[in-house]
Amino acid sequence: MPFRTILLNGKEVTAEYQAIGSGASESSEILLYWLREQFGQHGPRFGCGLAQCGACTVLVDDVPTRSCVVQLHTVEDLAEVRTLDGLSHDEKDPHPLQREFVELQAGQCGFCINGMIMGSLGWIEGRIAGGDRSVPSEDEVKAFLSGAAPGNTRNYICRCGTHTRIVAAIRSAAEEMAR
């Protein structure tokens, strides 16, 4: 079985992955399952397997990525993968996004929280890295999460209807992240 080595939340890890076929017809294990089964990650979750909801979002080389459709043979060796599990486990010292989601009670069932936090984390960090330290407006956050923003066509679903709180939480976290 082939191997893949990645930097998972900053740590180098290696595991086998399953694959069938070769060349153009190769299909291989899905990153989402691999992260969950091989490395016990619980943040990314299966929502649709179709890249249509965001539940499985991780950052691959800082880019929000739908891990449910990424096959391992397409992942670069030593790719940097960040998950919600690696953000902060300390309830007393959470990441600003985690803190604001709790502070503003931006969850009902919470099944979407992984996608909301990891997606907006990659997005806001990307803005900051590009020199834009402004706090995104409400409309900008909504456009990003609706898959209608420059650089993001992927929609993020929250089926419980926690939208207004999620937008508010992301904006107040962005304020702190850009400081």
Binding site: D85, L87, S88, H89, E91, V102, G110, I113, N114
Partner: peptide, 8 residues
């Protein structure tokens, strides 16, 4: 919510 926000 805290545990949902930090994947625990």
């Amino acid at each position: 919510l805290p545990a949902k926000a930090n994947a625990t």
